[in-house]
Nucleic acid binder design. Structure first.
Lengths: 197, 197
DNA sequence: CGGAATAAATCGTTGGACACGATCGTTAAA
DNA sequence: TTTAACGATCGTGTCCAACGATTTATTCCG
């Protein structure tokens, strides 16, 4: 039994849905299923009733829930003991594209300044390809990208989530006939795209 | 942070030695080092002082120790809620070689009957090669082996620990000259061996 | 009813994580 | 100074867990 499994379990229990939990955790639904299954196998107890496509906590599941909550709460408390957050000072310079910024950043910034009020935060628009050099030079500390894949050896890269790429055209546009639409189909057409790296 | 790491940490903290902890956990010393390092990296705190070849808990380490103890204690409590041990009944037939039995079994049996007083335990000496068929047929439930390697697809095999194989000879025996001694050197000599599978 | 949509389970594949053995550097004991 | 002991590190191999695709089962709706 590992913390990762408990965390997944808590998420499913909160959402009462494997699929939604997977989305929140940024993982595949099958992975959520596998983790819950591993948990149930190890404890030799079913923690969810799958009645049709409804997901409900069993009695054992409710017990596990309280234990898991207490444990994650305990780890949170412990972590805060080590990284005494309120004392974190300094500045953080982040490069983030406008498209991402407008959607995700408000909530993130709010939470961040709540947790780290002593950190001065600088946000810069992202629009070019100097990113690698900028990160290496220390001019910026952190960057968010919309990208197919990132291969920078010198910096730490973490995939946060994936977004579908959707094409939008005016009514009657010839490309609308094609379904599915491939990148190759775009050849020769003019189009606006969200930024890449 | 995962339970496996906390468990390893507790073991090192109890033994105050990476090497001995590795032995108790049946893993390589390098793996213990890696786990502790991962823990320290994640928490951004050193939990052990490595002063020369001495290993001591840091202040942070002592904090972590109490948290980790509480957590493992909590999981133990939780597990006991699900698998209500006292109600486990039935019988367990174990095949175990005398060499192992005489050394390890007393403590194991004592703990087992304490935890599962309702289970009737049958121990049988192990001496032959019908093991596979015996396990498959269900005549025995569990077996302990001294073996180089076990390849039985149909049964679950778990390596518990490893033992050094030591040769013993009378004084003046010609083989004593050879060091190191290889299995090939034994060719043509008579010797007694502990059982294998 | 019957077809479409939705959700969880299952399956086969693959990349990353982790354990291992070997080796290095350091320290303490001889 | 030598030797033994111990933890750190490195390179390698293996196994597990996450993934995408598919299947199965159920619910929704016409």
């Amino acid at each position: 039994m590992e913390f990762r499994q408990l965390n997944t379990f808590l998420c499913v229990a909160d959402e009462l849905s494997f699929t939604r939990a997977a989305q929140r955790l940024c993982m595949a639904q099958s992975s959520v299923s596998a983790q819950i299954k591993a948990l149930e196998d190890e404890l030799a107890v079913k923690v969810f009733d799958r009645i049709g496509r409804r997901v409900l906590l069993t009695d054992a599941g409710r017990k596990l829930y309280t234990y898991a909550r207490r444990m994650t709460e305990m780890t949170r408390e412990m972590r805060s003991q080590f990284s005494n957050d309120d004392y974190i000072r300094g500045s953080l310079t982040v490069r983030v594209p406008e498209t991402i910024a407008s959607i995700y950043m408000p909530g993130i910034i709010k939470a961040f300044v709540r947790d780290h009020p002593k950190v001065s935060l600088r946000m810069i628009n992202c629009s070019d390809e100097q990113l690698r050099e900028e990160l290496n030079s220390g001019r910026i500390d952190l960057a968010f990208l919309l990208s197919d894949d990132v291969h920078l050896r010198e910096v730490n890269v973490k995939r946060l989530r994936s977004e579908r790429l959707v094409g939008v055209a005016g009514p009657g546009h010839p490309l609308l006939a094609r379904s599915p639409l491939t990148l190759r189909d775009l050849d020769g057409h003019h189009f606006l795209r969200p930024l890449t790296d």
